[in-house]
């Protein structure tokens, strides 16, 4: 499509991978993201269209994986929808087309930096970062929380994998915070 070369949120050509003790941090540049909000009084229409299009609309505080689209709840009648960047770079346009005027759709891909955190037990790390009770919440839990003054979305993909979406402009500060806490935790 375009001739322009992308930079990661950390200012590099390639996504970062960092290992600290038992933790592996992987920057995810291969995710497209868009917000989907129901228009006033159109939730039923949106739900129907989403079902047809294979866009999950999970309940509050949950993430739900799908075949091409996954999604997590962000606000009443609002979700962030994920898809592979390679096939869905134009995620907002794709969703607008499928969901029609039942939803307000906005591209969010580059508003965020995504880090996948993998460890056998990430709890010692997370308890130093945010107030989420990671041990207690179920798989598929998704919430917004605060890490070192930064508002982030946290998704518990499974017991040992966490996805963090942080503000893209603060990607370096967020990674620095993760590294510091990891060194302290293990």
């Amino acid at each position: 499509m375009a001739s322009l070369m992308a930079l990661t949120a950390l200012g590099a050509r390639e996504p970062a991978v960092v290992e600290i003790g038992p933790l592996r941090i992987t920057e995810r540049t291969d995710l497209a993201l868009a917000s989907v909000a129901a228009r006033r009084g159109r939730m039923a229409d949106l739900a129907a269209a989403a079902q047809t299009a294979g866009v999950p609309l999970p309940e509050a505080a949950r993430h739900q994986a799908g075949t091409s689209y996954s999604a997590f709840w962000t606000a009443p009648e609002m979700w962030f929808v994920e898809a592979p960047f390679g096939s869905h770079e134009m995620i907002a346009d794709l969703l607008k087309t499928t969901l029609g005027d039942a939803a307000s759709v906005t591209e969010q891909t580059d508003a965020w930096v995504a880090f996948d955190l993998a460890a056998a037990d990430p709890a010692p790390l997370l308890e130093r970062l945010c107030n989420v009770d990671f041990r207690a919440v179920p798989k598929g839990y998704a919430t917004r929380t605060v890490v070192e003054h930064l508002g982030v979305y946290l998704v518990k993909l499974d017991q040992g994998t966490v996805r963090l979406y942080g503000p893209r402009s603060s990607a370096e500060s967020l990674l620095h915070a993760l590294e510091g806490a990891a060194a302290s935790a293990w």
């Binding site: 709840w73 962000t74 606000a75 009443p76 919430t143 917004r144 929380t145 605060v146 508002g151």
Partner: peptide, 15 residues
Amino acid sequence: GEHRELWYHEQGDRS
């Protein structure tokens, strides 16, 4: 005593 007041969940769901 009892006070009804507005709080905004800025670092949450924006309610």
